[in-house]
Design a protein around this nucleic acid. Structure first.
Lengths: 144, 144
DNA sequence: AATACTAATGCAACATGATTGCATTTACCA
DNA sequence: TGGTAAATGCAATCATGTTGCATTAGTATT
């Protein structure tokens, strides 16, 4: 879901994680918080032409390490990133929700409101995290 | 699960799908049926040095189209392929089972015996397929 | 068994995303 | 307002995925 924030809140967020408040990081944050779908690095590159690919790569990496965003792969296996819900902490992500891949618009939706039912694994398997993927049509695309 | 088959059965399998019985295809089949984890193309390349990358790529693609194997992404977003269970048909995969990624040995396990609980999606979303991913330690790695 | 036809393969080349090293710049604290 | 470590930009490399085309090989037919 889109979580509206202003620049001051983004600055606080960076400060909280001991990250310097740079223009690139603030722009990435504002873009990711403004949309309700996950964002791939190519998505960011197509908008922020003046920021180097490697810089974006490292921004996404450090945001993931700090628990600000989490990574989710789309149907092509390319990494997408979405703003974490409140349950995320550094080095301990809590993205056990449903990731919906729209086959038409290629959007990746994080449906945080859905909780996963408990799963019993076969003997010997020790799971540290679950992620449920669904593919199909998102509301906009299915309305056509 | 490892499904033991002999060469004649692999030839029948290819014939059934109107695919020519070539050495490369038979070797890929025997390797994939022999193991109980999913196989990436780099895995195949590291063993079958004499077969071209592109050939392996196309073999995996045609096997997936025919419903012989199905694709599953590992934690790095690279494609892995596993032998389909009985429920798979051409252009209509039935891989709605649990995919387990071992963070230690990097193995990808398809746990066909587990069926997914039913999921209620938010209004507007129309799902055509589900896949559940778990990450953690497989039996061998957790035993250490 | 020889032939012909189509599918399958190998090779070259290209595309995209991920990743590292290093020099330069910038944020921020003393 | 410097000084310092972090952040950025640039160049380069690697891995995987993908297409086109010439050659080879499987298979059906005679």
């Amino acid at each position: 879901m889109a979580q509206v924030k202003n620049t001051y809140q983004f600055e606080d967020l960076l400060e909280k994680h001991q990250l310097k408040k740079t223009g690139a990081r603030l722009r990435v944050l504002s873009m990711m918080y403004a949309k309700n779908t996950a964002t791939s690095q190519p998505d960011l590159e197509s908008v922020m032409h003046d920021i180097d690919r490697v810089t974006l790569y490292r921004i996404l990496n450090v945001f993931e390490e700090k628990g600000i965003i989490h990574k989710v792969f789309d149907l092509n296996g390319t990494a997408n990133y979405a703003v974490c819900s409140s349950g995320c902490h550094e080095h301990h992500h809590h993205d056990e929700h449903l990731h919906f891949n729209c086959t038409a618009c290629k959007g990746v939706f994080c449906l945080n409101e859905l909780s996963l039912p408990s799963i019993n694994l076969p003997a010997g398997f020790q799971a540290s995290g679950f992620t449920l993927y669904a593919s199909g049509l998102c509301p906009k695309c299915s309305a056509r």
